[in-house]
């Protein structure tokens, strides 16, 4: 009985969390336009989705911005993490906390402040500003996922490479980068996901004619009921879910490998 109650409670919580999404998914296959009635199964909305010019354009922007911002913030974040890890203890924890701050900062504040910055710097709003904004909020996440890998690194490994005749840049590419690669890939995936996911910051930093999927969904929803939104939202939810599962599996595999290594050392 107790066991049943416990399971029932977990079930209720998940129901509470996921019911809206399941309803949305179900309605994306509903042939009736009305939200109240089930008119039979259809893939009509998905077909229409891929015929809609507006949605396809914003899909293109979303993917281009996600890829570019993920790659650039990965490079910036990795370089920053390596720099930070070589600092002395006090400045290091200071810089770490400062880079952590944007993660905690509400998106709306990040968005508005970036908007003000772009106005101040007299940059035209559009693709460029949205890309810069995405790079800005992605970089701390890359730092945070590369940092633990750098901490695990044997400090003498770099010296060992130099000792064997490697120039500093050879040692960096052949020894350090392969060692922290799992963290870099995780950070890159995370950045990609966050970029696809973002609405608030994009909303404040984009310009005329450039919108990503979440902005398009928002404006479509304001124009009135359109079942295409359901189909689009379902696809976005699933792709972000898959990416997050990959990131999480990578991170837990990493922790397992670390534990194993510690066990063999003892």
């Amino acid at each position: 009985m107790r066991k049943f109650l416990r399971r029932f409670y977990v079930f209720l919580i998940f129901l509470f969390l996921y019911a809206p999404i399941f309803v949305l998914m179900a309605y994306s296959f509903n042939s009736s336009r009305s939200r109240g009635a089930w008119g039979g199964f259809t893939l009509k909305w998905y077909r229409e989705l891929f015929r809609d010019r507006e949605i396809l354009t914003s899909l293109k922007y979303t993917i281009i911005i996600a890829i570019l911002s993920a790659v650039i913030s990965t490079i910036l974040g990795t370089a920053a993490a390596i720099g930070i890890s070589h600092m002395r203890k006090v400045p290091r924890s200071l810089v770490m906390n400062i880079s952590y701050l944007p993660v905690l900062n509400p998106d709306i504040i990040t968005g508005v402040s970036l908007m003000i910055l772009f106005i101040f710097a007299n940059i035209n709003f559009g693709f460029k500003t949205m890309l810069i904004a995405h790079i800005t909020f992605n970089t701390p996440y890359v730092i945070l996922s590369v940092m633990p890998k750098l901490k695990q690194l044997d400090t003498h490994i770099y010296e060992a490479a130099l000792d064997l005749g490697a120039t500093p840049s050879y040692a960096f590419w052949k020894v350090i980068i392969p060692q922290i690669m799992p963290g870099i890939v995780t950070g890159c995936l995370l950045a990609f996901t966050l970029s696809i996911d973002d609405f608030v910051i994009s909303f404040f930093t984009t310009g005329v004619g450039v919108s990503n999927l979440s902005i398009t969904v928002f404006s479509m929803a304001r124009r009135g009921v359109n079942p295409k939104i359901n189909a689009l939202s379902t696809l976005m939810f699933l792709s972000v879910l898959i990416l997050l599962i990959i990131v999480n599996v990578r991170m837990s595999r990493d922790i397992k490998a670390k534990k194993q290594r510690e066990a063999t050392l003892i």
Partner: peptide, 20 residues
């Protein structure tokens, strides 16, 4: 002279092998 130009090699205390 930097380490990579010296005709000297080192065996480190905790080996510092390349795990990858």
């Amino acid at each position: 002279l930097p380490p990579y130009k010296r005709k000297v090699n080192t065996v480190f205390q905790r080996y510092a092998l390349f795990p990858h």
